[in-house]
């Protein structure tokens, strides 16, 4: 027994060390700094202990709370769309049709496109005066005038950003779900059909349980990606219009590099991590209690 423990640790240790050193240590430092009024560049002043002041500031600051809201909106919308489109396309690709292998390959293309390219591409497509989306929709007579797709101060702009992000990312969900679908034995379908189950019943009783493991993976990954989203917003809207697309990560970045308040930025990022943790712990509990089996 002792020897196994020794081997177990020996195999585990290198990875643990790397992760602890490169993420763990800086993160503990971040927690520590969040309790200080710490200027980013410490030439002129020294850090001053402020306790939880930075956290209190975060919770009473309407801009930052707006950022929390935008982040949650981005995540929820992007998770729903990813899963909805992922499941639908997977079910479509599980049907028999001409050129199926080709389409299955095609579907993976957007996922392989680098995020930077995707962001720039969609910003270009959405452009209010010469964007391809405007041109397409007017030429098809769906809209009369060119529209400002990234110009709405409500949730409209964020929705457009989510659509651009989803276009790139849902294929991963598709291939996960598709693989899940392929593992469901055909005999089961035949069996329930004999029972006279309708389409909806089949979907709930067989299809969904069959792909649930894949969906849970997609859920966890998309939640993490969504709650810490930065790149696509930074590149597409730089937070505008009127701060309607600033996310938590954006505020962390702004505090650190714009306002040079490292303590405040650290507090913001701790809040971000906490939110992600809450979600993921919930999922993990869920996965364990349901005893998922593939």
């Amino acid at each position: 027994m002792k020897r196994t423990t020794y081997t177990a640790w020996k195999f585990l240790l290198p990875a643990m060390l790397v992760v602890a050193g490169i993420v763990g240590f800086p993160f503990i430092k971040t927690i520590y700094i969040s309790l200080f009024n710490a200027p980013l560049i410490a030439y002129t002043q020294k850090a001053e202990w402020v306790g939880f002041k930075n956290f209190i500031y975060a919770f009473i600051n309407p801009s930052f709370m707006g950022g929390v809201f935008h982040t949650l909106y981005f995540s929820l919308l992007s998770i729903s769309l990813n899963i909805l489109l992922g499941v639908l396309t997977a079910m479509l690709l599980n049907q028999k049709f001409f050129g199926r292998a080709f389409v299955r390959t095609l579907v993976i293309l957007p996922w392989a496109l680098p995020t930077v390219v995707n962001a720039v591409l969609w910003r270009w497509i959405y452009n209010p005066t010469y964007g391809a989306l405007n041109a397409l929709l007017t030429q098809l007579h769906i809209i009369q005038n060119y529209r400002d797709w990234l110009g709405s101060a409500g949730l409209g702009t964020m929705t457009m950003v989510v659509l651009a992000d989803t276009w790139k990312n849902y294929p991963l969900v598709t291939i996960l779900v598709l693989a899940g679908l392929q593992m469901i034995p055909k005999e089961i379908y035949e069996a329930v059909k004999v029972d006279g189950a309708n389409w909806w019943n089949i979907f709930w009783r067989i299809t969904l349980p069959g792909v649930r493991p894949a969906l849970l993976v997609a859920l966890v990954l998309k939640t993490i990606d969504g709650l810490r989203v930065f790149d696509i917003v930074y590149l597409m809207t730089s937070g505008g219009p009127a701060s309607a697309t600033k996310t938590i990560s954006f505020y962390v970045y702004q505090e650190a590099f714009g306002f040079l308040r490292l303590g405040q930025a650290s507090a913001f990022s701790i809040i971000n991590v906490t939110i992600i943790f809450v979600f993921v712990i919930f999922y993990i509990k869920f996965i364990r209690s349901e005893g998922v089996s593939g």
Binding site: N127, P128, T129, Y146, D148, L150, G151, T237, G240, P241
Partner: peptide, 8 residues
């Protein structure tokens, strides 16, 4: 003024 100015 062009409304598109707002994101230009």
């Amino acid at each position: 003024s062009n409304p598109a100015s707002l994101q230009a």
